[in-house]
């Protein structure tokens, strides 16, 4: 009996205001996932713009990397900093974006940690949307870092023989590789829950990957066993392809290998990351 009175008081004052969300039926799939992913990518970018640390990561880090490597090591390695700038910039571009992709893992681990994912998961949005959002925002960050690096490199004296199309292709190639790696870091973030550990372990992956390559030094000066690794390291291949695109030289070979690597890494790690993500969320 009491229930009747209760429902009566329940239905009466429900405010019928404009902002009532429309009833959604097939909202689980397709366009809505992309739309929600884009909204969450917007969140990721606003976050970056708002937080000085993140903004510095994207803008200042490439500048600092370039200055350090060129002016600290350049003279010793190439005998001349401007010659070294030509050699190193394409590789430092790759390195910067790899470091940025490690940030994807930290960001996701952070979100899981603070409970904001609980909020997202209690909303009628696809479970893939937060992941898409994180990756979408990161792609935008990679592109920003890459452009800043190229602009700053040009100010320092880097000269490219490439036209606009080749430059865009170089950036896209680097982003493709970073996209592949961000699945590795996402999987890591789902396994290791603590954001700080994710950051530490991420460095453990990204450091050998970038320094154990021909990004900073030609492989010919290294011991044989290391050359073996440097030769297969996808970072070397990506750097080679970027050099080819920006400075002239073979492109198709290294670019093909780099893209195969990117596809391979994505094929292995994306399903792992998504499975772990589904389990965690």
């Amino acid at each position: 009996m009491t229930t009747t009175t209760n429902t009566a008081t329940n239905t009466a004052p429900v405010p019928t205001t404009v902002a009532q969300p429309p009833p959604r039926t097939g909202a689980r799939h397709g366009p809505s996932t992309l739309r929600h992913g884009a909204t969450l990518a917007w969140r990721g970018l606003v976050k970056t713009v708002h937080s000085p640390e993140a903004l510095i990561d994207v803008t200042l880090q490439p500048v600092i990397f370039l200055l350090l490597f060129v002016y600290v090591f350049g003279g010793a390695i190439a005998g001349d900093t401007s010659a070294y700038l030509q050699f190193a910039l394409p590789g430092v571009l790759v390195q910067t974006v790899i470091f940025a992709s490690a940030g994807t893992g930290t960001g996701l681990a952070d979100d899981l940690h603070t409970g904001i994912f609980d909020r997202f998961r209690s909303l009628p949005i696809s479970r893939a949307a937060p992941l898409l959002g994180a990756i979408g925002a990161d792609l935008a960050r990679y592109a920003t870092s890459g452009v800043i690096m190229l602009v700053f490199g040009t100010i320092l004296g880097f000269r490219t023989s490439a036209g606009p199309l080749a430059i865009v292709a170089a950036l896209l190639l680097v982003m493709a590789f970073a996209f592949a790696l961000c699945w590795v870091f996402t999987a890591l973030a789902m396994l290791v829950k603590d954001p700080r550990s994710v950051q530490g372990l991420g460095a453990l992956i990204s450091l050998p990957l970038t320094f154990g390559s021909n990004v900073f030094v030609p492989a010919s000066t290294m011991p044989g066993w290391l050359q073996g690794w440097v030769d297969v390291n996808p970072v070397s291949k990506t750097a080679d392809a970027v050099r080819g695109l920006l400075l002239g030289g073979p492109v198709a070979g290294p670019a093909g290998t780099a893209l195969l690597w990117a596809a391979g890494i994505t094929l292995v790690f994306a399903p792992i990351a998504v499975t772990l993500y589904r389990r965690r969320t």
Binding site: P21, P23, R24, R43, V46, K47, H50, S51, A54, T114, G115, I116, D118, R119, S122, L123, P124
Partner: peptide, 18 residues
Amino acid sequence: RLRIGLTGQYAAVDDALS
């Protein structure tokens, strides 16, 4: 999910946003 709201034990809002 269309009909519920959840306020968790740990305030789930984004620190970095306004």
